[in-house]
Amino acid sequence: MKPAEGSTVIGKSVTIRGELTGSEDLFMDGQIEGTITLTTSRLTIGPNARVNADINVHDVIIFGRVDGNIKATGSIDLRQTAVVTGDVLANRLAIEESAVIKGRVELNPTGASAPQSS
Rank of each mutant, 00 (worst) to 15 (best):
T73V: 04
R42A: 02
T21N: 03
T85Y: 04
V57Q: 11
V84A: 07
P109Q: 01
E19W: 03
Q80T: 13
T40W: 02
A82F: 11
V51P: 10
I62T: 03
I55D: 10
V14K: 01
I95S: 11
A114V: 09
T39E: 06
N48W: 13
G11I: 03
E106A: 06
T8W: 09
A72S: 02
T39Q: 12
G46F: 10
V105D: 04
D67G: 09
P3H: 05
I10P: 03
L38D: 15
A99I: 11
D29S: 12
N108L: 05
A114G: 01
H58P: 01
K12F: 06
L20S: 00
P115D: 09
T35G: 13
I62P: 11
F63E: 10
T85P: 03
A4R: 02
G18E: 00
N56A: 05
R104I: 15
I36T: 06
V51N: 03
G86S: 10
T85R: 06
V9H: 05
K102W: 10
Q116I: 15
A49V: 04
K71Q: 07
I10H: 02
T21C: 11
G86Y: 02
N91K: 14
R17F: 13
G68M: 05
G6H: 04
V51R: 02
S41N: 08
Q31P: 01
G46D: 00
T37E: 15
A82C: 10
R17V: 13
F27P: 00
V83G: 09
S7V: 00
A99D: 00
S41P: 04
D29F: 03
N108S: 12
G68E: 05
I62V: 10
T73C: 01
L107R: 03
R79D: 08
S118E: 06
E97Y: 01
G6C: 14
G111C: 11
A53I: 07
I36W: 01
V83Y: 09
K102H: 14
D25V: 02
G111A: 00
L78V: 10
I95C: 10
L20K: 03
A99S: 02
L26G: 08
H58M: 09
E97C: 11
I101K: 07
E96Q: 05
G68A: 09
Q31K: 06
D87F: 06
G30T: 01
P47A: 15
G68Y: 09
